[in-house]
Design a protein around this nucleic acid. Structure first.
Lengths: 342, 342
DNA sequence: ATGAACTGTGCAAACGTTTTAACAAACCCA
DNA sequence: TGGGTTTGTTAAAACGTTTGCACAGTTCAT
């Protein structure tokens, strides 16, 4: 490996000069700079990242901490898009991305400690947003640059990027109400996740404002899994009084719902109208296409990376909570009026 | 930050002794070791990763290099599962994972050079497997620990993990043949990708061995996008003589195919039977569920990470090509006989 | 009893950078 | 002409580890 010293020797200058050439120091003469650059090119010099990090105390690296296995599938679909947003922005800003998936809670804090205190990364993007997360506690206490994709009430100083999930769920529900539905159910996710709580609130507010009944048997809590949607259907459709419209916490769950309904012999949207969340690419291709709240997944990731880097580079970042706008994409699963070809 | 010297001072030993305690050097006495460990615990010592890497010349980090944007969506679905396999194994082996997505070809070689020559990572997992890839050339020439998920003929020394895609396509096609189909088409991907070539070969071999016609108008090349499947249908179903069975290169494309057929008023599998590849979670939930070749996505990732780490740690690794078994998952899209509830 | 082998520890060099302080040379303004 | 400023460069310390070598003390076989 060719080092800064090798270059210096060949160029007949000191190592410090070479270092300054690399970092475009203003007080280097044109000639020296050109000569050194030429020699670096010729000899194929690449700075040793570790040595640089050691002295500069910055690694130009961020870490993404994935949620624990319980929420595993949750990732699988809109996760790719989120990642793409994060990677695009961080690459643009010259940061590398470290990806860590902890298997156990103990493991998780162990891993993050290693990254944080071992000075391996400059900042952390958290994807999990459980209520009362000890990991967030830890990062907050040490004032380590952190951004949360999601929401936390307990830590006002932690930067976060989120949707207005309450409003999004309100909008989804209101859309069904406008379509004439009066009996509207909700297939939710794990109540420990803030996103599930927020959406539940919005769902209830929409019903309340419209003067419609809030019936607890029409609310089913599950996971971010297809099976949850599938199972919810055998329950909901077995009720003496059934909902005619359904808000579903996630597109993948929506697919399960669709499958369940089909097997039970019901038609969407005729027997039950459907709106779900996240707008993954495949919702458009469901049979029928599923109406979904687009949460700006790519932008969520892009923005998270952006404000994290800003937090690292500038001292004072004032805005701590960023809201990415959502929008409802209406498809056949929630409108009766579309002519169906078949 | 508390360093090894701080610990040494408090424990009344030399820094070297502390270092040896950390690395469990055999010639450290029980008492010293225990005392030092206790103090480390108390003072919250975490080794500085950069300093360690600098002297040990190993970073305990691997990089995943994602394919360029053209293949972007290709990732999105089975990518999550692949990633999970890689992350699980590398975490288990004590390696961190760096994720990089290059935007341009120039960018790509630039980024990888930086990682490789800057000694930032110990090994690289390549996800793209284009024919004649300059990146693979470069890594091969420098003998940098690399494993390719996919296949390359030009570089016999590069480790690779792959499916037997030729056989998989053969199996998919043979399955349709067994179902009685004699006119079988193939919706393929970009011909620059080895995976598309391999599957094409297998498809053709199956037809040849069964004495069935290979008709070039029944083969459509596209991308790994839903739209490709959708478009392929308007073409194929507009032919004077149409296929009655179809092999599709990817589940997502299969979703597009399904959508296209539905819009055109055809029924699956009655009018056209379908088998595709990758077996993403949602293929089970398509309407009808799509028969798919499970390529062992998780294991593909897990194995890639495993042999890369072996290559890094041991000098001589003999086996250079690893084949992950596939299996056909038969669902309704390819069998007439299932009673349909509706 | 004596040298050999082993055990436990410390010193100091090394890894490849960045950066502070110092300094010589050139330039500028009166 | 001389002091001050600017420009271009360097020497050397520092970042936090690891590790080869040295060495003192202990154990062991003869």
């Amino acid at each position: 490996m060719v080092t800064i010293k090798d270059i210096a020797k060949v160029a007949g200058v000191s190592p410090s000069t070479v270092s300054r050439v690399v970092s475009n120091h203003p007080r280097i003469s044109k000639e020296t700079s050109q000569k050194v650059k030429r020699i670096m090119e010729e000899m194929g010099y690449h700075p040793n990242v570790m040595a640089k990090s050691l002295v500069s105390k910055t690694t130009q690296t961020l870490a993404i901490v994935l949620p624990r296995p319980a929420e595993e599938l949750f990732q699988d679909f809109f996760f790719g898009e989120l990642l793409r947003g994060i990677l695009t922005q961080s690459a643009r800003a010259g940061y590398d991305m470290l990806l860590t998936a902890a298997t156990s809670p103990h493991d998780e804090s162990e891993t993050v400690s290693r990254l944080v205190f071992g000075r391996r990364v400059d900042g952390i993007i958290l994807l999990s947003s459980r209520v009362n997360d000890p990991l967030i506690d830890m990062l907050d206490k040490h004032k380590f640059p952190t951004v949360l994709i999601g929401r936390t009430d307990e830590h006002p100083n932690i930067l976060s990027v989120d949707n207005n999930n309450e409003q999004a769920a309100y909008d989804a529900t209101a859309h069904l109400i406008v379509q004439g539905h009066e009996r509207i159910g909700f297939v939710s996710g794990p109540p420990a996740l803030t996103v599930a709580r927020d959406r539940m609130q919005g769902y209830q507010r929409a019903l309340r404002e419209a003067g419609l009944p809030i019936r607890s048997e029409w609310v089913v809590e599950g996971e971010f899994l297809q099976q949850s949607g599938y199972r919810a259907m055998s329950f909901l459709m077995g009720l003496p009084e059934r909902p005619s419209g359904l808000v579903v916490i996630d597109d993948v769950v929506g697919f399960g719902v669709l499958r369940g309904l089909t097997e039970l012999g019901y038609k969407v949207p005729d027997d039950l109208s459907l709106v779900s969340f996240n707008n993954i690419a495949l919702s458009e291709l469901a049979q029928p296409p599923i109406s979904s709240i687009d949460i700006g997944t790519y932008q969520l990731g892009y923005t998270a990376s952006q404000i994290l880097i800003r937090l690292i580079q500038e001292e004072n970042v004032h805005q701590t909570r960023m809201i990415i706008p959502h929008r409802l994409i209406v498809r056949e699963s929630s409108i009766h009026t579309v002519a169906k070809r078949s």
